[in-house]
Amino acid sequence: MATETVLLVDDEKEILQLLSIYFGNEGYRLLTASDGEQALETLGRENVDLVVLDVMMPILDGIQTCIKIRERYNMPVIMLSAKGQDMDKITGLSIGADDYVAKPFNPLEVLARAKSQLRRYNRLGAKKATGAHEIAADELTVDTASHRVTVEGTEIHLTPREFAILEMLARNPGQVFSTEQIYAKVWNEPFMESANTVMVHVRKIREKIERDPKKPQYIQTVWGVGYKFIPTD
C-alpha cells in the first residue's frame, strides 16, 4: 500500500470525494483544499508528495497556484482542467506542471498518472540518496539525494521534470541525447511528436541555471541531433 501524501485541490466537492475514494483505496494519505489559497496554506504546514490541482477555481486559480508552488516546492503537480485545447496544456506544462488531465476524466487514469509521477519523483532522487549523489560543474551543483540545484551557492527551484532532464544530461557529460530519448526517459512513455515539449522544458532550465540563456554554457544544443551537458572549467 502507498504511504505518500497527496493534496487534492478542486472547488467541486463531488470531484474531491470521487478522487478521495480512489486514492484512499490505494492507501494514500489525503489532504484536500477547495481553492489555491487553501492549498498553499496546507503546503506550508504539511509534507506533501504530489498535488492534483484544478485550473478553474475561485480566489486563486490553478495557474497562479502552480506558479506559487514552483517558487518553493519540487513535488509533482498534475493539472485538471475542462479545457482540452493544446495551448491550455502547453501553458500548464510551461509554468511547472508535470502532467495534465482534461475533464471529464476517468479517476483511474488520474490515479495511474499520479503513481507514475511518484515513482519517477522517488527514483530520480527527490527523497532517496543513490550513492554518489552530487554532480558539480563550475558554479552549478546538482544534488540528486536532496533534489537540490544551486548556482553560485543560490538554490534554484526546478520542477521534477526539469530536474530529471538536467540530471540525465549532467550524469552523462558530453553525450548527446535526442529529444526522443529525453522524452522517453523522463516522461516514461513513447515519443509522440513531443519535441516542442522537451524544448520548452530545456528553455526553462536554461533560464534558471545559465548566466546567459541565449549563450548556454551547461546545456548546449547539437543542431539536428539533440542536447548535451558540457561541464565548464
Rank of each mutant, 00 (worst) to 15 (best):
D86Y: 00
D86L: 01
N188H: 10
V48I: 11
N106G: 09
F163G: 07
N188V: 06
R148L: 04
S20A: 08
T144K: 08
S94H: 04
T65F: 00
N106P: 07
P173G: 15
I59M: 09
T32Y: 04
R45D: 04
P216R: 13
F229H: 09
R211H: 08
P107V: 03
W223M: 07
A170N: 12
K185M: 00
I67C: 07
D138Q: 10
M57W: 02
V151N: 07
E162W: 15
N172D: 13
Q175I: 14
V101D: 14
A2N: 04
D35H: 13
D54V: 00
L31F: 05
L158D: 08
D10T: 07
G84R: 09
A136C: 08
K228L: 07
K204D: 15
E37Y: 00
P190W: 03
W187S: 00
R120G: 08
T144W: 01
W187D: 01
N106E: 11
V186G: 01
D49V: 02
T232S: 08
V77I: 03
G174P: 07
A164W: 06
A112G: 14
L108C: 05
I209V: 15
N122P: 02
G44I: 00
P173Y: 09
Y22F: 11
I15S: 05
N74M: 00
A137N: 05
R206Q: 12
V55W: 09
I59E: 12
P160S: 13
D61W: 02
T197D: 08
K89P: 09
V222W: 05
I135R: 04
L8P: 05
V101H: 04
T130I: 15
L16N: 02
K128L: 09
